Simulated assay, not measured.
Amino acid sequence: MSPLHILISFFLPTFFLLSCSSIPIVLSKTTIQSQCLDDQRSALVQLQQDLYFSPHFTFSSKVELWDLKTDYCSWNGVTCDALGHVIGLDLNYKTLSGTFQSIFDLHHLQRLNFAGNNFNTTLFPYRFEGLPNLTHLNLSDSCFHGQIPMAISHLTRLVSLDLSNQDYCYRRNDVDYYPTLKVEKPNFNSLIKNLMFLKELYLDSVSISTQGTKWCEIISSSLPNLHVLSMSSCGLTGPLCSSFSTLHFLSKLNLDNNPISYLPPNFLGISSRLVSLSLRNCNLCGHFPTEVFLLPKMPKH
């Protein structure tokens, strides 16, 4: 055997172990791209096999979301980039249950929407850290419960995070008693401190009551780009902190059904940028700055 043949036979096994993200020297870019796209399709096919329809938490049938004979980039709810990588997956309100482990092989995924399904499980089995490019995550109203895992905090590119209203899901399925989604360990600070690009945070009905009164300062210091904050029925205690004035982009604030008690003296300065404000059932006392209703950006109803 010639020295050249020996060199090729030595490197080929190692070469074929390279991941799809590697840039090959010997094989063409088209060959590697085709292999990568096969991985994308395989993950979606596996997802369809792992899901089933579950109206009212009862097994109905295996799902047939897509025609597997067609191009996966044309499948309903699937968005691809120009190279065929799956960057969006939207399967909202389809009464789905089962598991979605296979999506964590879609490393280019940027948007994931599983809102309004019937998973009725915890989030701990899922490797969210495997989706480093995720910018939008919506798991609202899908019957998730238990602790929010630390893996969510690794999604440092998130722009929008919606884990809200898991109780709506249980009510929709006529369940009288339902477990809650909660933030304990990791605590609230650990969950959001790395999400500095976050613009929208929806945690309605997520239990954060163990965090005391520090939740307000944590948000102010960790999420400088926040535009929308919705945390109704979270067990938050007041008062609303003055440091909210540092959230220069905050335009929508919903803190309904939390015992906030009273507002800070600089609340008028905080609210001057708001276009939507909801503080229902917050046990507010003392003087309320009625000048808020005269702000030009606040809608008049």
Rank of each mutant, 00 (worst) to 15 (best):
Q48D: 08
Q101P: 00
L223Y: 06
I192R: 01
E291C: 01
Y178W: 14
Y202F: 15
L223R: 08
I219R: 08
D167W: 07
S61E: 12
L203E: 02
Y202W: 12
G98V: 09
G146C: 00
Q35C: 04
F10Q: 14
F10Y: 11
Q40P: 01
R171N: 13
V26A: 13
F119V: 08
V275A: 05
A115I: 03
E200R: 14
Y72W: 07
K252V: 12
L47C: 05
L137N: 05
D105Q: 14
H248C: 04
I148W: 00
T213E: 14
T30N: 13
F104K: 00
S230T: 13
V45H: 01
N118V: 14
L198E: 05
Y262P: 02
H145D: 03
N118A: 09
S276E: 15
F10I: 14
S245N: 14
N254I: 15
F288C: 03
I152W: 01
N113E: 05
L198V: 07
S22I: 00
A82D: 11
D174F: 13
H136R: 06
Y170G: 01
Q101N: 15
K199C: 08
L229V: 11
Y178L: 08
L268F: 00
S205P: 01
S222E: 09
S245D: 11
I148F: 05
T30S: 12
D67G: 06
L263A: 03
H154D: 06
S19G: 15
F100E: 04
I218Q: 15
D50I: 04
D256I: 00
N173D: 09
I218F: 10
D167V: 10
F114E: 06
N257E: 14
V292E: 03
F293S: 06
C169A: 10
T237S: 13
E217K: 13
L17D: 03
Y170C: 05
G130S: 14
C143D: 02
L274T: 05
C285T: 14
N133R: 11
C285Y: 15
L134T: 04
T237V: 13
P125Y: 04
C73N: 06
S21L: 10
F119E: 00
P179K: 03
D204L: 02
P179T: 02
L236H: 05
A43T: 01
C234N: 10
L123M: 08
T79Q: 09
L112E: 07
S278V: 12
Q33S: 14
S205V: 05
T70I: 07
T180V: 11
N254E: 14
I8G: 00
C36R: 01
H107P: 01
V175R: 12
S153C: 04
T79C: 02
F16M: 09
S261K: 14
L201H: 09
V159I: 13
Q46M: 11
M1T: 09
F244I: 04
Q166S: 06
K29G: 00
R172A: 10
S221K: 13
P24V: 06
S278P: 01
D162T: 03
L12Q: 07
V175T: 04
D50T: 12
L68Y: 01
M150I: 11
V86P: 06
S233Y: 11
F244W: 10
P24C: 03
E64V: 10
F267V: 00
L229D: 07
L236Q: 03
T122N: 02
T237R: 09
S207V: 12
N254W: 08
T121K: 13
I87N: 06
M1P: 07
L181H: 02
N92D: 12
C282E: 01
T79H: 08
D50F: 03
Q49Y: 07
N173R: 12
